[in-house]
Design a protein around this nucleic acid. Sequence first.
DNA 1: TCTGGGGTCCTAGGACCC
DNA 2: TCTGGGGTCCTAGGACCC
Length: 365
Amino acid sequence: MSAIPLPAPAAGPWVLHVDLDQFIAAVEVLRHPELAGKPVIVGGRGDPTERAVVSTASYEAREFGVGSGMPLRIAARKVPDAVILPVDHQAYNAASDQVMATLRAQPGAVVQVLGWDEAFVGVETDDPEGYARRLQQAVLERTRLHCSVGIGDTLVRAKVATGFGKPRGVFRLTAENWLEVMGERPTIELWGVGSKVSKRLALLGIRTVTELAHADEAPLVGEFGPNMGLWYRQLGRGDGSSLVDDTPWVPRGHSKETTFQQNIVERADVETAARSLLDQVLDEVAADDRPVVGLGLKVRYAPFLTKTFTKKIAQTSDRDEIVAKAMELVAKIEPDRPIRLLGLRAEMVMPDDAREGHTPTRSGW
DNA sequence: TCTGGGGTCCTAGGACCC
DNA sequence: TCTGGGGTCCTAGGACCC
C-alpha cells in the first residue's frame, strides 16, 4: 500500500478559530476552586425560580442534559444538586480581555474578536497545527483556561473545524476534506443555518451539507432570494472569505430589554417600564458621540408573540426629542394584552451605512 | 410557571416618485 | 377612464449568533 502524498506545505494564509472550552463555567471554577468536578450552571441572577436561561453549564451538568439556552427552572429540575451561579459580566470581560491580549501577542497574528470566548486568528505559517498548539499553551499559561482551535482555509471552515477539536484539541478543515468530514451531516450544523432555514431547505429536498453544496441555484434563489440563496450554497461548500479583519468593532446602536417576572398589562405599567428602559438607553447614547438616527421597540406579548416597531428619525442627540419619538412607538403597543418582554433600541448607524463600513458582515464571507 | 439579553444582517411589501 | 414599469425609501419582522 502506498502512502497518500501529503499536500505540499502551504504558508497560508491560514485562518485559526479559537474557542474557549465552557468559558463561563471555567472562569467560575477558577474563582471557586471547590466547584471543580461539580455540576455548575450559570444563568440569570442565579435564582432558578426566576424567568432566565442557562448561559453555560459545566461538562458535569451537561451529563444531565442541560445546555445553554435552556430555561433555568428546567435545568434546576434536571440537576437537583447543581451549583447555580449568577452571570457576572465583569468577570468574564476581564478574562476575555486577557485571552484576546494573549492571542494578539502571538507572532504575526491578526485577531478578530467574535465574542467573549472566541476569535479568529489570521496567520501565515507552514505549520498551522504547531502554531495552534503554541497558542493554546500561551492562553493556558496566561489565563489557566483551555481552548480548542479550528484550522481552515476559509473563515467558515475554521469555525466549523473547532467543534471537532473540542475539548482542548486542534482540527483542520480545508477544501481537501470538507465534504469528507461534513458532507453527510445535516445542514443545521453549518454556522448560519438554524432550525428555520434547515427546515426550509429540507422542504427543497436538501438535508445534508453535500446536497446543499451541489444544489441547483433556482430553487435556492426562489426560496431565500438572490443573496441568501447563493450564500447558503456557498456555506454548504465551506467556501467564502479567508480574510481575518482586526478592525475594532463599533456598535451600531444601544439597546436594553427586560423580561418581566410577571406579565404586565396596565397601560401605566407599560409606560413606566418603557421609560425606565429608555433612560438606560439614553445614558448610553449620551456616552456615545454619534447622533441617533433610528429607534426600535420590541414587545413580546404572552405567551410568546414578538412584535417590533421601528422609526427612522432625523439625526439628533436631544434627549427630549428622542423620548418623544420613542413614546410614539410605545403608543403602538396593543392595549389589554399581557406583555412579558419590552425592549428599546437607539440606532446610531443605519444598516445601509453599516454595510458600507469594513466591519465584516455575513455576506462578506 | 419553558423559552435572557445583547447584537447583526436580510427580505417582503407598501408608499411614493417619475 | 384607466393605470405600466422602474426605482428608492421606510417599516415590520424573520433569522441567526454568542
